[in-house]
Computed example of a mutant assay.
Amino acid sequence: MKLTVTLDRDEDGVWVVECPSIPGCVSQGQTREEALENIRDAITACIQVRSERGLPLTIETYQVEVMA
């Protein structure tokens, strides 16, 4: 399964990564690589829990670029 994630740095320099198509699926890491590795684990866990609870595995999201 191929999913889009977002990466941001917080005020302490920690990388925060989120999978918008799985509500509440967020992780972090000291490096980008660590954060991406951690979100893979989080995605697996979130999908397992959603499956066990009979919830949709993902929700529909769109990625759109806008000029500002």
Rank of each mutant, 00 (worst) to 15 (best):
P23L: 08
D10H: 03
L57H: 10
R50D: 06
V64E: 14
R53W: 12
D10M: 09
Q30P: 05
G29C: 04
M67Q: 15
D10Q: 04
P56T: 05
E34W: 09
L36Y: 02
L55K: 14
R40V: 03
V66I: 12
P23R: 01
I59P: 03
T4P: 06
E18K: 13
L57S: 11
V64C: 09
V64S: 09
R32P: 00
E33H: 07
I59M: 11
I59Y: 09
S21H: 02
D8W: 12
V26F: 11
I22V: 12
I39F: 03
L36E: 06
Y62E: 15
I22R: 00
C25L: 00
E60Y: 14
I59G: 09
E18S: 09
R40F: 04
V14G: 06
E37H: 07
N38Q: 03
I39P: 00
V26G: 09
R53H: 12
A45E: 11
R40N: 01
P20I: 00
A42S: 11
V66P: 05
L3D: 01
S27Y: 06
G13E: 04
G24V: 10
S21W: 08
G29K: 00
Q30L: 14
C25G: 04
A42L: 00
A42K: 02
V17H: 10
V16P: 08
T44G: 06
L57C: 13
T44C: 14
Q48N: 11
E18V: 14
T61C: 08
T4G: 08
V17C: 05
D8H: 12
S51C: 10
R32D: 11
V5I: 15
A68P: 12
L57E: 15
G13C: 08
C25N: 02
V26C: 06
E18R: 15
S21V: 06
M67L: 15
R53L: 15
L36S: 05
D10E: 02
R32C: 07
G54V: 00
G54E: 01
P56D: 04
R40M: 02
D41H: 02
V26P: 09
V66E: 04
E37N: 01
S51P: 04
K2Q: 08
R40P: 06
E33G: 02
S27G: 04
C19Q: 00
N38S: 01
W15A: 02
V16M: 06
E18P: 08
D12A: 10
R53K: 13
E11M: 07
E33R: 08
E52K: 12
D12H: 07
M67C: 15
V26I: 13
A68M: 10
V26A: 05
I59F: 13
V49T: 13
T31E: 07
S27A: 08
Q48C: 10
C25E: 06
T6K: 04
V66T: 02
C19G: 05
R9E: 12
C46M: 15
L3M: 10
C25K: 00
I22C: 07
T4N: 08
L7R: 03
L7K: 03
S21L: 04
V26M: 13
Q63L: 14
P56K: 04
R32L: 13
A42F: 12
E33M: 01
V5A: 12
T44M: 02
L55F: 13
P23N: 11
M1A: 12
I47N: 05
V64Q: 09
E18Y: 06
D10P: 02
I47P: 03
D8T: 14
S21K: 03
R32N: 02
Q63M: 14
L57V: 13
G29V: 00
P20K: 08
V64Y: 11
